[in-house]
Simulated assay, not measured.
Amino acid sequence: MNSDESTIRLAASGGLHYPFDAVPASGEAIEVAPGVLWMRLPLPASLDHVNVWALEDGDGWAIVDTGLFMPDAPSRWGALLAGPLGSRRITRVFATHHHADHAGMAGWLARRFDCELWMTRAEYLTCRAFVAEQGREAPQDAIRFYRRAGWRRDTIEQYRSRFGIAAGMVFPLPDSFRRMEDRQTLDIGKRRWRVTVGLGHSPEHACLYCPELNVLISGDHVLPRISSNVSVHPVEPSANPLGEWLASLSRFARTVPANALVLPSHNEPFHGLHERIERLDAAARRGLGKLRDRLAEPRRAVDVFGTLFAGAVEEARFSRYTLATGEALAYLNYLLANGEATSQADDDGVLWYRMRA
């Protein structure tokens, strides 16, 4: 589906505090701060939900993230609009990033209420490109990307057959948008929210922090019980998203208070942001340490799954296999970018990685 569907590495959440005893039932909402509502929409995957938020905005609501575009999505939004949102208008729609479970219904809501869609520029343009994949054949650059990672021919054929299907889970975006930028300040209703951009999980992921409420809408950038999927994708095979993500986490620890209430896209709202960041950073660096040992001999990307991920990563579970490939390459590219490792292609175009002598 997308890189939000299931994050590969489960991460311990010890030491965090979860202030709410329940999660919102279907069609209902929980007020987590004055004028901030927590709602939940289903996902057809092992990670079975996405959290969406409503911020009081004058006589209406600003919506942050929107869930997937699926056959039952309009009726689910209809129940929320008629129920906890009190039949008030939607003033604007914010999408933290382009993944389908976040931006899937953004265009539908924006068109229904004739309101603006707010995204960062990179996320809006990436989402437009993603939607355009419908009906296309898998590009040769992508085929080459997965062949270099060590995929077998039948797995590549699965990729060919599935290419573009996930794009159907995003309703067409409006043809214009309002741009969010890092450190920008937004007035939403009576309160002021600061945009903080996080890198690594997606190109230009927007988080929203309200100093008055001490609330951070973290999207997928910081999650309490699972780690964000940080992957290399065929469109930018030499990217270093792991380096970007770790640097972003460090910046969040410096700019958002430790006692903020964090509203993540998956799992439950929590306190303990700085501790969570420390744990995520430490887990990533442990993975890098294990990988350095593993690369004493040449390895392909598909050879290091057991080093980085708990549990088997099998080709039969195609979505998980794809996510694992992207994350493995993120770790490998980190070592390449730091000058610690080298890569060399064999006669079949497969890349083999090893630590420098």
Rank of each mutant, 00 (worst) to 15 (best):
L208D: 14
T7A: 07
E181W: 05
I217T: 04
V215W: 07
V23S: 13
R300A: 08
V93P: 14
A324T: 02
E315R: 03
L242V: 12
A206Y: 01
L280K: 05
P139G: 10
N338I: 03
S6N: 05
P211Y: 13
G58R: 12
A110R: 02
S6P: 04
E297P: 05
A328E: 15
L261N: 01
D346M: 05
A100Y: 00
T307S: 15
V262H: 06
L288K: 03
R251A: 11
F171Y: 15
D220S: 01
L288R: 04
R160S: 01
A283E: 04
V197H: 09
M169E: 14
F177V: 13
C115E: 14
A357T: 13
R89N: 07
L85E: 11
Y334P: 00
L336F: 14
A22G: 02
M1H: 11
A324N: 10
L273M: 10
A206C: 13
L246I: 13
A33H: 05
V230W: 00
K190E: 10
T120W: 01
R9G: 08
D346I: 01
A296W: 05
Q158S: 06
L246H: 04
R92H: 14
D175M: 10
R183P: 00
L216H: 09
T120S: 15
F177Q: 13
S87K: 08
T120L: 02
P269V: 10
W245F: 14
D154S: 09
V170Q: 10
R178L: 10
N214C: 07
E137N: 06
A122K: 09
E315P: 00
A328T: 11
M119R: 05
P172M: 07
L249A: 04
V64F: 15
E236A: 10
N333T: 08
P74C: 02
S87A: 13
E275R: 02
D348E: 15
A25F: 00
E28I: 00
L336D: 08
D101Y: 04
G135T: 03
D303C: 04
A282M: 05
V230K: 05
H99Y: 07
